[in-house]
Design a protein around this nucleic acid. Structure first.
Lengths: 177, 177
DNA sequence: TATTTTGTTCAATTATTATTGAACAAAATA
DNA sequence: TATTTTGTTCAATAATAATTGAACAAAATA
């Protein structure tokens, strides 16, 4: 391991001086993604990773994310995997460096599209089966209740169809950003 | 307190025999809402309450929800409050019964509309301020980085505007279900 | 071949969120 | 007035989710 060299003595008392601390701008951008992720129920660490990559001009390696965001190896590795599966991050090859580098995919349509699919569409998928199954379990109920449940199931079927119709529309509106 | 009466000896060994256990249909409907709520990051107990009210033909009092769903008083009270604030549940007055009764609001536009507003729109609100603040913090950066951050901020502004445009559109598509 | 670099995996820990239930209050009833 | 019913609040607890870090592996380098 190489000795840490002796410049930069004033600042960076506790942190490795080779790694520049986050700039105020970077902090702000990250915060923006963190609070948005919160609204969507996504973990903070993932938003931090995406945020820093989004703010960064050049692709970053996992090390850098770990050092600058104070993440554990585990979080960084898992977070990057998650973002990559989601298509929110892509890997970049950099000659002469064997570390994988990552950059943020900043196309809203791709991002939001995949997120909606993963988060919502999945759950629409088996709704139809479920509803059919429910429809076949009303024997024990009174006639009045059977009628009511039948109405409810119809309603849920309409909701399901409406939801499915909306998604592609939203995708189209996300356009080419 | 009234003595529990002596019919229904076979079943209901442990549970209060006055309270009918959940029918299979009810269980299924509740499960549907529970798994959807999960996708949206909402607590299970709230989905259970809404689910049972949705399946029920007549309005239910808090007691009934507590007994049939095995909830604590606290959960029931808080859950109903949350649902009422969201507009997902309305109160019904029933003559000769001083308990408040609740029924599910089953209009998709109201439900989804309020949920989206509460969950998403709130977070769009201060984005503009945030972005302006960020834009005024780029002094310390290199020219190249400043240019890049400026581009990113522009992009975020476009995303913000796109998001705002989409919401009313979605609401319109939710139509009159 | 031995060592270092780069990264993954997953059990253990920590942090966060949901749920409970006891204490309390307000209104109705005895 | 005393008691019961109906409901709220909130500190304590339980359940869930996120994060850590140690153990491991594969590939590059010495």
């Amino acid at each position: 391991m190489e000795a840490v060299f002796a410049g930069n003595m004033e600042e960076n008392v506790k942190t490795n001086p080779v790694v520049p601390p986050l700039e105020p701008v970077e902090v702000e951008v990250i915060q923006l993604f963190v609070q948005f992720a919160r609204a969507l129920g996504q973990p903070r660490s993932i938003a931090e990773i995406y945020g820093l990559l989004f703010a960064s001009e050049k692709p970053l390696a996992m090390d850098t994310l770990i050092d600058r965001l104070n993440l554990s190896k585990g979080s960084a590795s898992q977070g990057l995997k998650y973002l990559q599966d989601l298509g929110a991050v892509r890997t970049i090859y950099i000659a002469g460096d064997r570390r994988t580098h990552y950059e943020a995919v900043a196309e809203l349509r791709k991002l939001a599209g995949r997120f909606l699919r993963q988060q919502i569409l999945t759950h629409f998928e088996d709704t139809e089966n479920r509803l059919n199954r429910i429809a076949g379990q009303t024997q024990k109920l009174s006639d009045e209740q059977q009628r009511h449940i039948a109405e409810r199931i119809d309603l849920l079927r309409r909701w399901d169809r409406t939801g499915r119709r909306i998604l592609p529309f939203v995708l189209k509106m996300l356009g080419g950003d």
